[in-house]
């Protein structure tokens, strides 16, 4: 809405918006700040905001005591692996639905979406049982598969909406220009689809990273990712605020940065194209 407003109003908007923004962001800011305090400063009364002795010892302790790197590695493998596997399965499917649509395409898409609506708790025991039988409980492979399956509908949908934006005339032009199907895919379609595929990957890594039902219920010690690692702080250890903060900061930092890059794609991905 490009409307001319007085500078005064712009000042007021700026102050208000920054105030609200900082308020919403405050819990994250406070966590990051606390992670650099000593435990004593973390629970000091009244609370200290910036005037404390900055220290990195909490990060060292968290890593040393709980082997943070192992949880991080599990998170990376589960989020990255499930997304990659999902994209590999979804690209051909989305591709054919976007470019060779049939009467059933819409029904298939909606049905895929409906599987996403299945409440996880409703199938918790069967999955648990299957995992025990197949020896997948507390394994990264098992989680990669489950997280891939719960995100597959979103991946297919996002890719589908991106592919649909590639105009059919361009593909026809390539055909007229003498490109074979292989050349058409290699030189025309893929370069045009890469931005869409990239943002799909980005958003799904975020979703997989933060998934906290299956990761909590299907892992114990070996395959537990950061979600489960943090949940372990809900026991008495949680009273060590500085360490809790350091662990939390490390758990959310990578995804916070990825998330900021993907904010433009967020809306489309999470509303299945219903809002653009």
């Amino acid at each position: 809405m490009a409307r001319s407003v007085t500078t005064n109003r712009k000042h007021a908007n700026t102050v208000l918006a920054w105030g609200v923004g900082l308020l919403i962001f405050f819990p994250i800011l406070w966590t990051i700040l606390t992670s650099f305090k000593t435990e004593a400063q973390a629970i000091a009364s009244p609370p200290v905001f910036l005037n404390f002795d900055w220290t990195l010892e909490n990060y060292a302790i968290v890593q040393e005591r709980s082997d943070y790197m192992r949880f991080l590695w599990n998170s990376v493998i589960i989020a990255g692996g499930s997304t990659l596997l999902g994209v590999i399965i979804a690209v051909p499917a989305a591709w054919s639905m976007a470019f060779v649509p049939s009467k059933r395409t819409k029904d298939i898409l909606l049905w895929m979406l409906s599987t996403k609506m299945l409440p996880a708790v409703g199938v918790l025991y069967p999955i648990y049982l299957i995992f025990i039988r197949l020896g997948l409980l507390d394994s990264r492979v098992g989680l990669v598969i489950v997280i891939m399956l719960i995100n597959l509908p979103i991946i297919v949908w996002m890719l589908y909406t991106y592919f649909r934006e590639i105009p059919g005339e361009i593909l026809e032009a390539a055909r007229m220009d003498g490109a074979t199907l292989r050349e058409e895919i290699l030189y025309v379609l893929t370069p045009m689809a890469i931005p869409g595929i990239a943002s799909t990957i980005l958003l799904n890594i975020i979703l997989a990273w933060n998934e906290a039902f299956w990761t909590l219920n299907l892992t114990a010690a070996r395959a537990a990712p950061l979600t489960a690692f943090i949940a372990s702080y809900s026991s008495p250890e949680g009273l060590f605020y500085a360490k809790l903060s350091a662990a939390s900061t490390m758990a959310i930092a990578p995804i916070l940065i990825l998330g900021w890059f993907s904010q433009k794609q967020l809306v489309r991905g999470l509303t299945f194209g219903a809002v653009k």
Partner: peptide
């Protein structure tokens, strides 16, 4: 960015 940030924080955190 400030407003969007909480969405990227994992639920357990």
């Amino acid at each position: 960015i400030l407003v969007i940030a909480p969405f990227f924080v994992m639920p357990t955190v």
